[in-house]
Amino acid sequence: MLRTTAGLTAALLLAWTGSASAADTVRLPAPTGPHQVGVTTLHLVDRDRPDPWPDARGRARELMATVFYPAHDVRGYPVAPQMTPKAAETFGWLDVTAAHPELPKSGVDWAATKTHSHVGAPASPVRRPVLLYSPGAADPRTINTTLAEDLASRGYVVVSFDHPGETSEVEFPDGRVRIIALPADPRTHPEIFRAMIDTRIADTRFVLDQLEVLARGQNPDAAGRALPRNLSRALDLRRIGMYGHSAGGTTAAQSMYDDRRLDAAVNLEGYLDHGTAQPGQPGELLPVARDGVDRPLLLYGTDGYRDARYDSSWAAMLAHGGCTMKRVVTNATHWVFTDFAAMAPQFQAAGLMTAADRVKLVGAIEPSRSVPHVRGAVAAFFDRHLR
């Protein structure tokens, strides 16, 4: 969950004093499926819904989404960076300073990391199951590239989207970079957490609507930017799943409860209640935990991230039995479900991160175990329920 208060916004006032020198380029694990991966971005504007957060109040809600998909041919199409230069610059002083203090304060070129996905490559013209991804509070969608790419390489179309206003940074096609603007800490202000989750669910519903536009052969991008060839033919909207990390896991579970278009969901260690003014203490259960759900839900957690809120809301969800199941990654903690699982050990090996900070962020588990564990469990769950 979000670690700081509107203190993330206040971090803008801090001077960035990190060194300009960069460590060896951080590498993301290669996808393991049989397909090459293509990638594109969509700028989506919901003109019927005003943005709820203070920095954009009254303006139309706008989102950025990244679409990963099995490619027909990647020759001649460049490999995408994990982050754009502007997003990387903002991440390097805002997210590192305020959201993830365990990360190196200097010595990392956040813009240098490459993905394994090829920008604009034509999609394979075969209908594929679709997966949505919602990131944790404060985290950008780009910090779960590893899992998204792997799922795409296994034959899914993965649509990863931010929730602007509560994400450390979101860059739009015109060069604007929007930073976090929550008015208070959702851990201690249940009304903010409720507004955040309600906004995320509305974002999810809008993304699903726009995928229907895309599947009809139309272009949902706000500026009508060119789409990769065959992309609309790659979507099978009869088979849709969603996964999310932390607040994104909360979003995935509750969105499936609310929207029958979602057939299965994975909650990567997100609370299933609204919390209270006392951090970590249980609050009112979300409807999905109160009532249960009639479609498959995987609760996927770690042995290193526990509090009363987590224990009670997950226990309530599991008490319904039926379609809900649980898995645990051992010797791990909360951000092992993100790209940090592979990146933190590289920072430690380069002398940029202490062992204690690495364990605090992702646990002591080696990436050779954690990355295949998470990839395999999520893929197996969706293979079982969407294939």
Rank of each mutant, 00 (worst) to 15 (best):
I180D: 14
A341F: 07
R200S: 07
P220K: 10
P282N: 12
K326P: 01
V26A: 15
D221H: 12
D307E: 13
A344Y: 14
Q218V: 08
A195P: 02
A226F: 02
D311N: 11
E212F: 01
G107H: 02
R49D: 06
A181D: 15
L2G: 14
A148P: 05
M343K: 06
P85D: 02
V130L: 02
M196C: 02
D303F: 14
G58P: 11
Q36G: 09
R239F: 00
T145R: 01
H373F: 13
S153N: 05
Y300H: 11
M317S: 12
L214P: 02
H245E: 08
Y310D: 09
P31V: 03
M64Y: 06
Q36N: 11
P81S: 12
L8G: 12
R306K: 11
P34D: 11
L132V: 03
A56L: 15
V67Y: 03
R384S: 09
L268W: 12
T115L: 04
D311S: 14
L299N: 11
G301R: 15
R205Q: 13
T25R: 15
L285I: 07
A349M: 11
A319C: 06
S106R: 10
P296H: 12
G241H: 08
G363H: 07
S255C: 04
S370G: 07
T5N: 12
D383W: 05
S255Y: 03
G224L: 05
A349R: 15
F206Q: 03
Q254S: 04
D46E: 13
T5Q: 11
T97Q: 13
A60R: 03
Q278Y: 10
T276D: 09
P183I: 01
F161V: 04
A80G: 01
T204M: 01
V374S: 10
T250A: 07
G136N: 05
S153D: 06
A20Q: 13
G301D: 07
A123K: 07
D259A: 11
G322C: 07
W16C: 09
I197P: 01
A23T: 14
G244I: 02
D311G: 07
H320M: 08
Y257F: 15
I143H: 04
T113S: 03
G136P: 04
R27T: 13
G92Y: 14
P135K: 09
Y310C: 04
L286V: 00
V45S: 09
P70G: 04
A71Q: 01
P287G: 05
A364V: 09
D139R: 14
D357I: 06
A138W: 10
D383K: 12
G7W: 03
R309C: 06
G351T: 11
L44H: 01
